[in-house]
Design a binder for these strands. Structure first.
Lengths: 260, 260
DNA sequence: CGATCGTTTGAGTTTGATCAAATGTGGTGG
DNA sequence: CCACCACATTTGATCAAACTCAAACGATCG
């Protein structure tokens, strides 16, 4: 799936993805775009269940997910694990690293993944020289933070059924705006055990909850694919309000058209 | 409690608190310190249960908690509420506001509170001109984010008993480094219902859980005060690891000395 | 063709929620 | 100073959601 591209290609890939990400916040000038393009990126592939960074690591670069499905998680001494967020292609995983000294959580691949890595020093320079880019980067972290808050509301207050519904709504939107949903269907290479770790439920209970969602005609699953059959029903069941995703008007418009 | 200070005093209060906060990350130069001091701040008082900002609001300024106890929270349509974090004096509550368009959560006073408000435009200018200050501000938001992640782990994986223990450990540390803990005792003007909203538990169950913690000799409560009787026991019960708070070495050192 | 991993099902248990009422506590006004 | 009110805490009893353990069933892969 990932024929190793030569270095030049790689560099432009990483920069391109990053520029697209930043321009969601505000269009960049040519100078700014060049500054981002100048970032040298190397890519690395990971297999499922492999860690990209581990809790406690002192990190040297910022990771950009180019392909695949990954997650951020924390574990307790006794092995209990909480998945804190899912990463979809195009996201910057850990802008934390160049400000905080150590990782206070881990990042792991869920499916085969390709990450682009940008050295921390390069980002540091960008911050010193390009306030608008800084703001755009900051914006990315704030959106991530908003998502974390919604997850806390989700796990703290919603029932298992609502929780699962909510997660699928979120994924439906986030994958939708990057064009990874086709007829309500998207790739979701996550086991029920992992889903349990994300929702704060046991794997067994996840299984039964999925059965309920299927029985109610809200979703269906086939292998690693998930289909949302009834968006409105799912959003109603989850009491889903997409505003926490801080999508732009064009994102929202495109999504709504897609649903017609 | 809060005799209204004249405007000059107010201004220096807000700036002083902010400078102290930022210098935890890195010492500022005189120029930088002046830039922060130039921020005009007005204060406003709130009574318990009053909202400072509400979900959906388009906000005009950044709020700094000067006195009292406040929290960040989100609600579901049907009234269920999740408290997302507690604010202790000295924290910047919502650096989000000048990057994100709308609040995706609310901020409410838990006890009588005094907030300092800095206009968004002023912070904008600071960001354009002072990269080091930008970095320090960003650092503040990242620490808040790290705390939110730990809460998610807390609510998602820990039992009621562990959860409560963990929250008290966090407060003990956070209040400790700002000098608000004396002999293990600190002010905690939060009802059991509010505690329930923070921990994802019913008020009744919070009550029983507190009884257990007391029975085990870990804490005691008297009115609005909470005393940690056995720090080590509490940290063990909670599987508490303070690294997510990203305290400085001096913070940690001071805290450990205090515990002797 | 085993072996491994993920999903599904069943039975029994635990944790925490809900409902209802009693008990404390602090503040206010007569 | 007391009566009263509004809230907060505490207790008891019952119930439901979700967990655990155990086993069967299905894929997928070398």
């Amino acid at each position: 799936m990932t024929s190793p591209p030569d270095r030049e290609t790689v560099r432009s890939d990483v920069a391109e993805v990053l520029i697209r990400k930043l321009e969601v916040f505000a269009p960049l000038s040519d100078v700014e775009r060049d500054a981002v393009s100048a970032l040298a990126g190397q890519t690395r592939s990971y297999s499922p269940r492999e860690d990209v960074i581990r809790q406690g690591d002192r990190t040297e670069h910022v990771n950009l997910l180019l392909e695949g499905f990954a997650c951020r998680y924390k574990t307790l001494e006794d092995g209990r694990r909480q998945i804190l967020s899912f990463f979809v292609p195009g996201v910057i995983c850990d802008l934390n690293v160049f400000i905080l000294e150590r990782m206070d959580h881990s990042i792991g691949a869920l499916s085969p993944c390709v990450f682009g890595a940008i050295h921390r020093r390069q980002v540091d320079e960008l911050i010193d020289r390009q306030p608008r880019i800084t703001r755009a980067l900051w914006w990315c972290t704030l959106v991530g933070e908003a998502t974390a808050r919604e997850w806390l509301l989700n796990v703290g207050q919603r029932s298992a059924y609502e929780r699962a519904a909510h997660l699928f709504c979120e994924l439906y939107w986030r994958l939708g705006v990057v064009g990874l949903v086709r007829d309500g269907t998207f790739d979701f290479p996550v086991t029920q055990t992992e889903l349990g770790d994300a929702l704060g439920l046991s794997a067994v209970h996840v299984n039964r909850t999925l059965q309920e969602l299927r029985r109610d005609g809200l979703i269906s699953t086939q292998g690693r694919e998930l289909t949302v059959l009834d968006v409105e029903g799912l959003e109603r069941a989850a009491m889903f309000d997409p505003s926490y995703l801080h999508l732009t008007d064009t994102d929202v418009g495109a999504q709504r058209r897609r649903e017609k």
